[in-house]
Design a protein around this nucleic acid. Structure first.
Lengths: 203, 203
DNA sequence: TAAATCATGTAAGACGTTACATGATTGC
DNA sequence: GCAATCATGTAACGTCTTACATGATTTA
């Protein structure tokens, strides 16, 4: 249900074709809300049918074409309504913590492999998000630059501050996950050191 | 795809009816993987069709009945295979951070309402998970107690340690989300204090 | 005898994934 | 002329949500 608002957020900056939108999406809001092209095109059509965006067919060469979408007043209202409405939180569904709860059922090696993969996963997210933070500070992200260009000067600080705030949150979460995986690796070591009766445990 | 492994994890402790399983589920693994009854019953049937569990129809009174499920060797193997296989991470899809990225598009009051709700949401999760930590330490959680009862003594420490590790991770994450929301509230205050040209910002 | 709870679902639809399909145009 | 990339999807399938449906048994 959030996909359309992610799309509206981008389109509000200026009209784009589905293709360009998908590219911009991937390097901006896609960092917090992933969507493949195969979901974006149909959603745009659906939004058009509901009057949130308007598509304008354009010729491109002899028989090529593309559809340029722009936000309608209704689309703008839908976006601001969503911003003011309570967010619906999904129920917890966390495969990593599910598995962690049963690590005693596997070998120490498998447990380590899982925890190392978890660390690597979040390390890679962390790098993405830290990269974004740099691009926010330097206004290097193309999406943000476009947005800043159409934003009144007195609103620029706020725009940038909230972007920064968002990515700081993501970075903090990634760090927590990495630390957790590392504590897990230490725990596996400790528990597999003394298999039955060491000085600290066993009974 | 993880639901069946969550179900297997519980059934491995001992046979249960779908009804009992759903209850136990909610107060143990349901803290990390939510599933409604309407998903559990069909999944059990599907798992039975695939030979992972076996259901035994039992009479209950005159014409009542219930179906007692137990894990087959194939189900056990499926579980341990899953434990040893790489976990597939879902792509990021985070409505709260999506909204946070565009808070400049709404009023300070709406921004505050969102951030307070976010804090409340994670505060409530935090309480759940901290409660679980206490029930782990005191072996008060009925699921854990059943599991410990059927676990060889030298494996009990590990079983408890991994449960604790899991919930510690969840607690840490909840705290991070709460802190983030609080930093956000402070940010809204700062940004709405000086609407156009204060000493620290504006231009 | 009425309420609680035991017991098991179905049905419709939204959302998301994966893989595949197709053709035009631009740059080398 | 060929590759890259521009451009837009469809189709099938799986998961999850929400709401509803039904009846039996136990306990107060």
């Amino acid at each position: 249900m959030s996909l359309r608002y992610a799309l509206l957020a981008i389109l509000r900056v200026g009209p784009l074709s589905g293709y360009d939108l998908a590219k911009q999406f991937a390097q901006s809001v896609g960092h917090v809300w992933h969507a493949p092209d195969s979901q974006i095109y149909p959603e745009l059509r659906k939004m058009e049918a509901e009057g949130l965006v308007e598509g304008e067919q354009q010729a491109r060469g002899e028989r090529g074409h593309r559809r340029l979408y722009h936000v309608t007043p209704a689309g703008d209202a839908a976006f601001t309504d969503w911003m003011a409405a309570p967010l619906d939180y999904q129920r917890v569904r966390d495969p990593a913590h599910l598995r962690a709860a049963y690590l005693e059922a596997t070998t120490p090696d498998a447990a380590r492999a899982f925890l190392r993969a978890h660390r690597a996963q979040w390390q890679s997210e962390l790098e993405q998000w830290e990269g974004e933070l740099v691009r926010i500070d330097t206004v290097t992200n193309p999406m943000l630059a476009r947005r800043i260009a159409v934003t009144a000067e007195q609103d620029r600080e706020r725009t940038i501050a909230y972007k920064r705030f968002t990515y700081e949150g993501l970075v903090a979460r990634a760090r927590i996950e990495i630390e957790w995986a590392e504590r897990g690796l230490a725990l596996v070591d400790r528990l597999s050191d003394d298999p039955d009766a060491g000085p600290a445990g066993g009974r």
